[in-house]
Design a protein around this nucleic acid. Structure first.
Lengths: 229, 229
DNA sequence: TACTAATAATGTAAAATTTACACTTAAAAA
DNA sequence: TTTTTAAGTGTAAATTTTACATTATTAGTA
């Protein structure tokens, strides 16, 4: 059997990005209003097509930047969606990516020049095509990842309080956690740096700020430590 | 901005299958000798190209069947490999799939008509392109999945002994497990059916055979039970 | 300046889970 | 009947997880 690349079908490869954000309270998701047919005017994920001269990670970042002005986000490849009729226009396979970003930090980038908008995760509108399925997949993976590695790195400001970290976990897991147990657990991971500074916004007493100790974290990973929560 | 699907680049979408097998002792991997250029004669994963009229799951099954005669295998989508120059002939994105099968059950299908061959996982030859990376990804995922859901379903004969199940876990995790703790753990999951039958091959005393109780398992999953091992 | 109000910070005992570990049993073969 | 070989079985100690309530700190207010 001789295989001939030339006789093979080529397809369009789309990349769709599920961008989760956190605003100290709620888990949110970033959507855009589609400005072309089909389904013009409906909400959808950030999407575009892979180009010949880039790999998928690059495509995901280019697309996100193009539609939102947001740059340099750590995105993870999630899953492919490949039903034959998933896109009514043409056979398209979509590679879903997801990311977690700190909303406040990207406020400037996401100006009104862009039609992207944050929605509370629980109040997001219906999306086009199979994008709702993609989001379901992504939240599932995000919850799972939460129990596997510490997630705050990308999602919180550089300095944050234990309370903020806990709220982030609660938003992702959609569950209440016990304050003391949470703090004990996080402290036992031994990857946070307690600062002398306090955040005075949330209370009169103020609460201490922390930073991730990335070096320590990387060392632990390298040593084979498993961060299951 | 009006988007025009026609101006987008189309690409070849390959599907490569990492097939793990178990023969009551070792974890193995199924490879084929490539019979076309480039890299003719070298070992590689089972691969082929997605066709216009099928989705990725279907393509993975078609390709596996075409190259090995094996049918109806449960495969899971793993990850995309998309480096621009990963295939020297033409821009190709590869979707990796992996599966776990029971070697004995597929012995008939995998006859000498096919050039596919089982290799001990630890003794597999070097593979073409980025296939070694794919295999690394797959074994990682398999180990992870092991701690998440019971895996024996697809990998063992319908009836099996506790000893066989333990050896399977040991092969995947590449680690020794304590016999009593393993049995207690498995029993506590409460998804096995103990039969009256014994397997007399492995010892004079014989060891009881078990079956997975799929109905019970599905009910537990539906009830939100988590099978973390 | 003392009092109030509001959230931050902290520790422990009980329960559950995980781990380490060794002897008896059953059946075939000699 | 004795020997051989792997199967089968239980428990105590260690660790981890859970549930839970009081004190501390500061700014604002009287």
């Amino acid at each position: 059997m001789i295989h001939n690349y030339n006789s093979e079908d080529k397809v369009l490869l789309a990349v769709d990005c599920i961008i989760f954000g956190f605003d100290e309270e709620d888990l949110k998701i970033l959507l855009v209003k589609r400005d072309f047919e089909p389904e013009r005017g409906k909400w959808s994920l950030m999407g575009g097509f892979l180009k010949r001269n880039e790999d998928l990670d690059q495509a995901a970042n280019r697309i996100l930047h193009h539609l939102t002005g947001i740059n340099n986000v750590y995105m993870e490849q999630l899953y492919n969606f490949s039903k034959v009729d998933r896109d009514p226009v043409e056979r398209t396979i979509s590679v879903a990516y997801y990311a977690l970003i700190n909303i406040a930090e990207h406020k400037q980038e996401l100006t009104e020049n862009y039609s992207a908008k944050w929605f509370s995760f629980s109040e997001a509108p219906q999306l086009i095509f199979d994008h709702d399925r993609m989001v379901q997949h992504a939240i599932h993976r995000l919850r799972y990842r939460t129990s596997t590695k510490p997630i705050g790195f990308e999602l919180l400001p550089e300095k944050f309080t234990m309370r903020q970290l806990q709220k982030l976990y609660e938003a992702i897991l959609n569950d209440k956690l016990d304050k003391r147990n949470f703090i004990n657990k996080i402290n036992s991971l031994d990857i946070l740096l307690k600062l002398d500074e306090k955040d005075m916004n949330s209370s009169r007493k103020g609460s201490f700020l922390y930073m991730f100790d990335e070096a320590k974290y990387k060392k632990k990973i390298a040593d084979g430590f498993s961060f299951r929560l």
